[in-house]
Design a protein around this nucleic acid. Sequence first.
DNA 1: GTCTATATATGGATAGAC
DNA 2: GTCTATCCATATATAGAC
Lengths: 227, 227
Amino acid sequence: MPNKKARTATVAGETAANVRDAEAARATLLAVAAQEFATRGFAGARLEVIAAEAGITRAMIYYYFGGREGLYVAVLEDAYRAIWKAEQALATQALGPQEALRKLVEFRVNYYIDNPTFVSLVSIENQHKARHLKRSRSVTSSAAPSLAHTASILAQGQALGVFRKDIDVVDLYQVIVSLGFFNASNRYTFGAIFGRNALDAAPVRRFVSDVVLRYVAVTPTTKGKKT
Amino acid sequence: MPNKKARTATVAGETAANVRDAEAARATLLAVAAQEFATRGFAGARLEVIAAEAGITRAMIYYYFGGREGLYVAVLEDAYRAIWKAEQALATQALGPQEALRKLVEFRVNYYIDNPTFVSLVSIENQHKARHLKRSRSVTSSAAPSLAHTASILAQGQALGVFRKDIDVVDLYQVIVSLGFFNASNRYTFGAIFGRNALDAAPVRRFVSDVVLRYVAVTPTTKGKKT
DNA sequence: GTCTATATATGGATAGAC
DNA sequence: GTCTATCCATATATAGAC
């Protein structure tokens, strides 16, 4: 797949180096495509540009992914895989429920700020009513561990009597994602209107954690207080 | 401006009917354009389609708005004007701070659900880093009353001792908008992954109000409890 | 498997008639 | 002020050479 190496390797005959090359080339193509789709949208992305920056020709995109749509779906799947994989690293830490929840919130706030391409791809996919995402078994089936992570923190806090019992885990998940995602996704319009810099992460982490911890707390936490 | 009425009226000679016609035609064009831009994006919108649905020709868009960009900016300005105007209707009600805040939250949750065109336009504008919005004095200068509304509720609650003193009004504003906006803007991907229907507004209004009221409360409110 | 070349389509912007 | 007609640029998708 990469530049001009005339190989005749069949699937059965692939060497380790071949596989590495093919995977690296695929990764490069996906990274370039993610960037281009995120910047110009699904229809606006130029296959020409993607191919050129990945060091291949347009025809290869058709050959490997069948065209624009196949490439775009692969990019989306990759993007979700990445955030969930990053989140799973948090799950191994042994912390009390409040601290675990705070870490989770901070992870989300940071991830969206640090990965504008992911944020744009998700926004774009919503403009297409998640038409492509719905067709991807890979994405819709692999969200479970992410939700389970939040659920386990919630359950732990409830068992210890520090979190309310009447919290729905999907509500909580939505609250965390909403606050984190919006801060990054709408930073330009919100910033233009209210003169805020969403990339200044520390104050955002602070008030978002505050909101979430107070939402679940049985009694008001004093952790988030500024005074 | 509307269909095939050969008029020779100058600006000075405009009759009331002329003005009404011109305004109605402009409103039609803006409504059609808003829909098309929201659906297909800034670059993806076809001027051809907009013109046809508004009952005019492409050339007229150039004549009146100078082209795609001028039309798009007018659409954006109109969209913000509309939400702020709708919000101002709330400001006249005489309520206690908790009830006023709840009404404000519910208004926002409902508005984003009921106005998907607005939500899409804002999302699209963020994908363009608010390039057009920044140039529009009309929008950036008219946000003040909206923020003032939230500020006055906050101040009232603080004066009565029911809201915390250490709440930043822009933080509060951002929390409300984040929760409401995301619910509508990301309903497709979130719904596809977690099987939620964001358009079922009642439960969303409930937990979002709960989150916001607990955020500002000096003591935990029991209003939001389900048990 | 990868490239070059091309057939084909689309739509933006504007000139000019009325 | 409004329409018709046209020029022109851009990109997709694929056929065919190597």
